[in-house]
């Protein structure tokens, strides 16, 4: 038994565990190295290049782009807006997503797979199309305004589209399945006997939920929140389609630099900033919760 614990993993009965593991990992690591690490390094190097004119830059080692980022409040304001929108979307997803996740996890419905299918159904439709669909719901002549006008509740359409609220709504639509899946996985893993034990000891349903189910499902909730936050903070399409002129996020500034101003060095700098910000959040999460919770959801 002692020998068995000394060799926790055995590949074909051989003892060369590390080399075998590296061999198996090699394709993934090589792919990641060439398709992720190298491009990120190139972007980092590009952030020191000098922007000469529209679409023209030259290799250099200068800190102009970084100094501009650190000294220009325009970028700092965008970071604040991005975090505010991303946190709001994440919190709403957590609250709204918990209920269906709990229902799916605890239902005795025989065809649970059908509920799961419904959950992933939105993924079958393009993200862009799903985002555009909100125009027909929230617009002045959209479903909500048309209904309220036709039954006489309002005289003028309510402005819902091209607002920050519409941006958050679009994000929730896109992110909710990620949150529900994570919470569901976490709830599924909870031993039902613990809830029964709590009830036996005199806890009400609400107390059993608050003292047992909710704490045990927190890792899933946290994993879902991390995913939702990172995905929402990095988006630029949703504000572009559903937001007004002032509803922009940090990703939109990267888009502006690269696609409008054709200023690759500044675009690269802002991309690095985004990567560092989101990477830091993932590291903090890992420190507190452990990333294993995220992987668990995809087992």
């Amino acid at each position: 038994m002692a020998e068995a614990t000394a060799q926790p993993i055995s590949f074909g009965g051989k003892t060369s565990v590390p080399s075998k593991a590296w061999q198996l990992l090699a394709p993934a690591l090589i792919t990641l190295f060439f398709l992720l690490v190298i491009p990120m390094l190139i972007i980092f190097v590009y952030s020191f290049y000098l922007f000469v004119d529209v679409g023209v830059d030259k290799p250099a080692f200068q800190f102009g782009n970084w100094i501009e980022f650190f000294t220009d409040g325009y970028y700092h304001g965008a970071i604040w807006t991005t975090f505010r929108i991303a946190i709001t979307a994440t919190v709403v997803c957590a609250v709204v997503g918990y209920i269906p996740a709990y229902f799916i996890a605890t239902t005795t419905f025989r065809h649970k797979w059908l509920l799961m299918l419904l959950l992933i159904l939105p993924f079958w439709v393009s993200f862009i199309i799903r985002t555009f669909s909100w125009i027909h719901v929230l617009g002045n002549q959209g479903f909500i305004n048309a209904t309220l006008l036709s039954i006489g509740i309002i005289d003028e359409p309510i402005k819902m589209l091209y607002t920050e609220g519409a941006v958050i709504m679009g994000m929730i639509h896109f992110l909710l399945p990620y949150m529900v899946l994570n919470i569901y996985v976490s709830l599924e893993g909870i031993d039902r006997n613990l809830v029964s034990a709590a009830r036996t000891l005199g806890a009400t349903s609400w107390q059993a939920f608050r003292e047992v189910t909710l704490p045990l499902s927190l890792p899933g909730l946290a994993a879902g929140s991390l995913l939702c936050f990172v995905l929402s903070a990095g988006t630029f399409v949703t504000p572009q389609i559903l937001g007004g002129p002032r509803d922009f996020m940090f990703g939109n500034l990267i888009f502006d630099s690269l696609m409008d101003e054709l200023n690759w060095p500044m675009g690269a700098t802002l991309s690095c900033v985004m990567l560092i910000m989101l990477g830091s959040i993932v590291l903090i999460y890992n420190r507190i919760m452990g990333l294993s919770q995220v992987y668990k959801s995809f087992r």
Partner: peptide, 13 residues
């Protein structure tokens, strides 16, 4: 270069 950069900022408030 100058106008486009400024426009991107004015556009956003």
């Amino acid at each position: 270069t100058e106008w486009q950069r400024k426009w991107n900022r004015v556009e956003k408030g």
